[in-house]
Amino acid sequence: MPQEQVQEELDPFGTGKLPSGRHGLPRDVVVRSQRERMVEAMIGVVAEKGYTETTVADIISTAGVSRATFYEQFADKEDCFIAAYGTVMERMLTFVADGFAQGGSDDWITQIRGGIGALLTYLAENPVAARVGIVEGFGAGARARDRYQQAVSSFFPFLDSARTMVDEPDRIPTQVARVIVGGVSALMFNEASNGNAAELPKMLPEMMYLAVAPYFGHDKGIEAMNETEVPA
């Protein structure tokens, strides 16, 4: 991934580093700024090199902080990655939540389409986030995996609210929501790991079929697919 792209995505307003040397900034402001820089450095370096190859030395040189500062704020590389991963996941989930709420509709299909569509658009426009949030989190150990599971599980209630609209909702197996979210994330993983996150929005109609058919059956799924436009 080109450095400028990483830089632009991480620091869209060009805020960058605080002035070095003596200044009158309160200590907690400095600490917070350093923490943010280290977290953003972690996101950028992991997107470029992958989690395994990333070192603490990469982080401190990119963030422009000392090794001592790093270890004041993080126990180790994994600890810093978890903070970075959490930041990326929160940004992604914010987009999804906005997507669901878009248009203020209470129609389930419209909300689901808005949520998945917003996520796909976000990933297509933010390849760094796609790489770190979708691909690298998987291989980075148990804490990252728990964080991922937590994010994934937060989608289940949205999907499962479809049960209120079908006959005999209890007959639909419990794991259906997990299969749908897992299927969407598996496809995102494939595309993001091949560097094709930009292609993801094209998959929205098919993902709508995936989300709708398990609750409402094949015909409704096809209908939802056919009335779904690929986001611009």
Binding site: R178, A186, L187, L210
Partner: peptide, 18 residues
């Protein structure tokens, strides 16, 4: 025939997540 071809891959990926 109108089921998208990509569904199979997504469903197997989703089953693996379970």
């Amino acid at each position: 025939k109108d089921v998208p071809e990509s569904i199979a891959n997504m469903v197997v990926g989703g089953a693996a997540v379970v």
